Simulated scan of single mutants.
Amino acid sequence: MPLGELPPPNLRKVPLLPSISILYSTQDTPFGGANQFLKALDAEFLRQGCRAATVEAADVILFNSHHEPERVLKARRRFPRAIFLHRVDGPMRLYNRPDDRRDAVVARLNDFAADATVFQSGWSRDQNRKLGWVQSGPEAVIGNAPDPSVFHPPAQRRVPGKPVRLIATSWSSHPRKGFDVYDYLDRHLDFERFGMTFIGNSPVTFSRIRQLPPLPSLELAEQLREADIFITGSQSDPCSNSLTEALHCRLPAIARNDGGHPEILGKGGLLFEDPKEIPALLERLLEDYDAYVSGIRVPSIEEIAKRYIDFAQSLIEMRGQGNLRPKRPGLLSAWRLGRRLAADG
């Protein structure tokens, strides 16, 4: 090699990042957990240099749960070489109604359009399998994280106030989002020792709990940083964005021992089976408050995005080795599935 000439770059040591496009129509107003997470994930993909400029340019197309099935089917037909990655929710039959047909939409989309699947928690994966989920490709468990520019710890160390400030949040007003718990606390909490705020949509009108409507993320995060303890009573929640947002604000929590809560909470709080346990758990948490704050361990959006990128890269490598063949449904099959999805919806 002549002097001064650089060796060619070793592309094997510096693999190109996969280009990823998220097939989901986000909303700028408060609109539920999937919307908030996918907005943050998309921004992080851009920051890490792997967000596809267009859907057409994507190596991997990520679609979400039961949302926009017609758009997913059209994209599957239009981009046969792309790898379709399905982020799965639920099972929705567990926290909604036993006859909820959205799980059937998710299963049909996964079987027809997805080349690989991401579950938001181990609990979600296991419960879907118990209800008959059939694996149709590689699977991974990857949780959620919020936008760190919005949901972050307070500037100063938190010291519980007098009264101690409790907070609960829920965009959904579904009864299984914990309203039996919040109603119990509204009637039985010692409001000389504690104050409590609920932010979101509620089917219950509280007498003593301060109630605020759904707030934009920046305002919601400020409310979380001003609180001392987060409470969630949601049931069969696969990966609660409300809980995740609170923990990212370094807010220790008391959570129902159900769904994905134990996986998310770790040592950052305490679990309950019955709302009657909460007053004693509050005292226990306050006795060793700093230890529970120090026990909060939640992955950042940077780490979550990296897990998606690594999984996407492994799928691309599998395709290159002939171990993964993107699904190529025919026009008649797509038409038949569209009719089935319309019936399920």
Rank of each mutant, 00 (worst) to 15 (best):
M1S: 15
L6Y: 13
P8R: 12
P9G: 10
V14D: 11
P18Y: 03
S21Q: 08
I22C: 06
I22T: 02
L23Y: 03
S25Q: 14
T26P: 02
T29L: 13
F31S: 15
G32D: 10
G33T: 06
D42Q: 14
C50L: 09
R51C: 02
V55D: 05
E56M: 12
A58F: 00
I61N: 02
I61T: 04
L62R: 00
L62K: 02
N64C: 12
E68Y: 10
P69S: 09
P69T: 08
E70Y: 13
A75H: 00
I83K: 02
V88P: 01
D89T: 10
N96T: 15
A104W: 10
R108I: 10
N110F: 06
A113V: 08
A116F: 05
A116K: 02
Q120W: 05
Q120R: 06
W123M: 04
W123N: 02
S124N: 09
K130E: 14
L131S: 09
L131W: 11
W133Q: 01
G137K: 00
A140W: 04
V141E: 06
G143R: 03
G143N: 03
A145K: 00
P146F: 05
S149D: 15
W171Q: 05
S173L: 11
P175H: 08
D180M: 09
Y184C: 05
R193C: 10
R193V: 10
G195E: 03
M196W: 03
T197F: 04
T205V: 14
S217L: 12
A221Q: 02
Q223E: 15
R225F: 08
R225Q: 10
A227I: 03
D237N: 11
P238Y: 06
P238K: 00
N241K: 05
H248P: 02
H248V: 05
A255D: 03
G260V: 05
L265E: 00
G268M: 01
G268E: 03
G269P: 03
L271P: 01
E273P: 02
A280Q: 15
E283V: 13
E283A: 14
D288P: 09
A291Q: 14
G295Y: 07
I296W: 00
P299V: 09
E303V: 15
Y308F: 13
S314C: 10
L315H: 04
M318C: 06
M318E: 07
M318R: 06
R319Y: 02
L324I: 03
P326Q: 09
L331K: 14
L337M: 12
L337R: 01
